[in-house]
């Protein structure tokens, strides 16, 4: 079987298009590359969706943490503490069993499926981590800029929208880039927690483990997986670097903050 045929058969296997049966014997390098790559669709789906939704939620929580109302502040602090203080692995398990209960009670039954339920957990998790980053940035917005805005007669929303928020994003962006990369890595945990795979449609790590179990040779599938993730990390740094450039386009060249990749393993 040629490699093109393999790609046609298994390229979209992770979302249920193509060959139903996974290869069982005589694994070729091409099959491993194709299937692990097709599992990557799920990693990208989880990470991108969680980042987009989590970004807005994180901004809201960061503002809540800086709020004057004590109950709102406490609520946001507890939210951040719970999601940052416990392992994501446990959060997945716990959430799955909560969703299972809800399903039995007839509420939101679709949440027991990984693509919705795990997404909810990832959104909340990344929102908590990002909220802490955004809150830290909010605290370090220079006083002078805010006073200048007030001197111009800006108040409330206009002051926030036009002065505080852009500076806050600018300050938070390098740390937020790392958060995006960690989130990509964290998506590999989804199918290792409670969430079941449906018809063997798993993520990249799921297929990598499938091959490692079947061939009893970890030296091929895991390096392939690592390769894919290094590529993704580089792509994320590139994309976020472009946004970083736009955020800092008014600054003199030498003062622009550089993005630095500081990987962390597990959350």
């Amino acid at each position: 079987m040629s490699c093109t045929q393999t790609i046609l058969d298994y390229g979209l296997r992770a979302i249920g298009i193509g060959e139903r049966l996974l290869p069982r014997t005589d694994f070729t390098l091409c099959q491993q590359f194709t299937l692990i790559g097709s599992g990557l669709i799920w990693n990208v789906y989880f990470a991108v969706m969680a980042l987009v939704v989590g970004f807005f939620l994180a901004n809201a929580v960061a503002m809540g943490k800086a709020s004057d109302r004590w109950w709102l502040r406490k609520l946001c602090e507890w939210f951040v503490l719970i999601f940052r203080g416990s392992p994501l692995f446990i959060q997945f398990f716990l959430a799955y069993f909560i969703f299972l209960r809800l399903k039995q009670a007839g509420i939101l039954p679709f949440l027991t499926v990984a693509q919705w339920g795990a997404l909810v957990v990832l959104i909340l998790n990344t929102a908590a981590y990002s909220a802490e980053i955004f809150f830290g940035a909010l605290k370090s917005v220079p006083k002078g800029e805010v006073e200048a805005a007030e001197a111009y007669g800006m108040t409330g929303w206009a002051k926030f929208r036009r002065i505080i928020w852009p500076t806050q994003m600018r300050l938070a962006w390098p740390a937020y880039t790392n958060e995006a990369i960690f989130l990509f890595h964290a998506t590999t945990l989804v199918f290792f927690s409670g969430f079941p795979t449906w018809r063997q449609q798993g993520d990249a790590l799921y297929y990598a483990q499938y091959f490692a179990d079947k061939t009893f040779n970890p030296f091929v599938p895991y390096p392939i997986l690592a390769f894919y993730f290094v590529v993704i990390s580089v792509a994320v740094i590139g994309l976020f670097g472009l946004i970083n450039r736009r955020l800092n386009r008014h600054l003199p060249q030498a003062q622009r903050p550089k993005l630095r990749y500081r990987p962390q393993i597990i959350r």
Binding site: P218, Y222, A226, V230, I265
Partner: peptide, 19 residues
Amino acid sequence: VRGVPDIAFFLFFVIALDQ
């Protein structure tokens, strides 16, 4: 170790070490 992404390392290393 820092460059290789994530839990894959945990899954990989135990088998590799064992073998």
